Amino acid sequence: MAHVSCICGGVSQKVTPKNQNATDDTALSLCHCNTCRHTTGLLCTSYLPIQEPEISANLQIFRTSDKSARYFCRACGCHIFRNRENGRGEAEWGVATGVISKTDDGAIGEVKFTDHMHVSDTKDGGIAKWILLGDKERVSKEANRSGDESIQSSTLEATCACGTVTLHLTRPDANSLIPRRNYPDLTHAYCDTPTSILSNASDEKWWVRGSKYLAGTCACQSCRLTSGFEIQTWAFVPRANISIRIPDGETIGRNIPLDFDSLPSGILQSFKSSPGVTREFCGTCGATIFWHETEDADVIDVSAGLLRGNDGACADSWLEWWKDRVSFAEDVQSGRKGPLATAAKNLIDTLSVGMQS
């Protein structure tokens, strides 16, 4: 059996891997399709094939098509299961790899991330261009099918799969430089950086990179257990540069400045993942939307898989990706052990090397 749980514990159970031969390897894929990115808010997903699981009352279902569905925790938004019909009309089940804490001895053999799927959906290769797996030549060709980089738009839309949450980002301006925020682990590793440096005493506006915003990857346990997957991707954007669409009668809605205190109910679901930290997700499709400090929400982490850039999934005309470090890379195996933990560490190591090279 494999033991799975989300961060809040609302979903905590055992599942049976489909491949139960401990002498056989299990090959996993990273999926970069539009559905996975916009349903989760991440740039890629990964699922371990399992036998049909028990579906608890704490799971919310979102049907991505008439033959596919995703299941996520109602309380924290963590994606747990995927169910899809294969070409023979049979249901194929998978569990999000990030929620697996351990497997029983002998339940499964070695696990490896071996290839990428649907890279062409990203237009620019997405995060696959930094993770060298499988057919590197094919991935490279798909990564070069870029979108229209000539369109330097003044706003960038970010939308979850169901459309309940639609954001509009604007370019950095004078208001972008007003907030202050400590340095993130992305740029200064918390494990070996003095607090005096982390406090950003010089008040550097590190999130603004000319006409772009800083973006990066994260492998921390909290991100993994609130998303369900191995690699979270964040863009750091001042709240002053974010508007959100709210319902407006029979029309498509209207955009208002993002204000968590006055936002109408039913658009964002909140979860406090740690002291002083709040995360938001879509209660309809389960997409991760934001991470921010509860009391000082002036610079927001926006989940990059929501972005709809003309130039591709990485929105390079809007974001400058930090490539020197995967945030909390040291945390990738925290709270779990066994073949999945080893595979996850190898994946993050591959990502780290790929970004730096």
Rank of each mutant, 00 (worst) to 15 (best):
F290C: 01
C314Y: 13
S357Y: 12
C285F: 05
R308N: 07
V299W: 01
V326Q: 09
R279Y: 00
A297K: 09
S334T: 07
V326W: 03
Q333C: 11
T284N: 06
Q333G: 03
N310D: 11
L347I: 08
F290A: 02
W318H: 12
Q356E: 13
A287R: 01
T350F: 09
K337Q: 12
G335R: 00
V332A: 00
R336W: 10
L351G: 05
V299G: 04
N310W: 11
L306W: 03
E320Q: 13
L351V: 00
C285M: 05
R279S: 01
A344T: 15
A315C: 14
D316I: 11
W291M: 02
N346Q: 12
K337P: 09
G305K: 06
A344R: 03
S357C: 13
G276Y: 04
L306H: 01
R308G: 10
V302C: 00
A343V: 07
P339G: 10
Q356N: 15
E293W: 14
E295N: 15
S357K: 14
T288L: 04
T294P: 00
R336P: 09
T278E: 13
E330I: 13
L351D: 01
G305R: 07
F281D: 02
I300Y: 08
V353K: 14
R308T: 05
F328T: 05
W291N: 03
S334W: 03
D311W: 06
P275Y: 03
L307N: 15
W322L: 11
W318T: 10
G286F: 06
G276F: 07
L340E: 00
D296I: 05
L306E: 06
K345W: 03
I348V: 15
W291I: 00
P275V: 00
P275N: 09
T342E: 15
G286H: 02
F328K: 03
K323R: 15
T284S: 10
L347G: 10
P339F: 05
V353E: 15
W291R: 02
C282H: 03
D298I: 01
A304P: 11
E330W: 14
L307K: 02
P339M: 02
T342H: 04
E295Q: 15
I300L: 11
T294K: 05
G309R: 09
D331V: 04
T342A: 14
F281P: 10
S303N: 09
G335S: 00
E280M: 07
E330V: 11
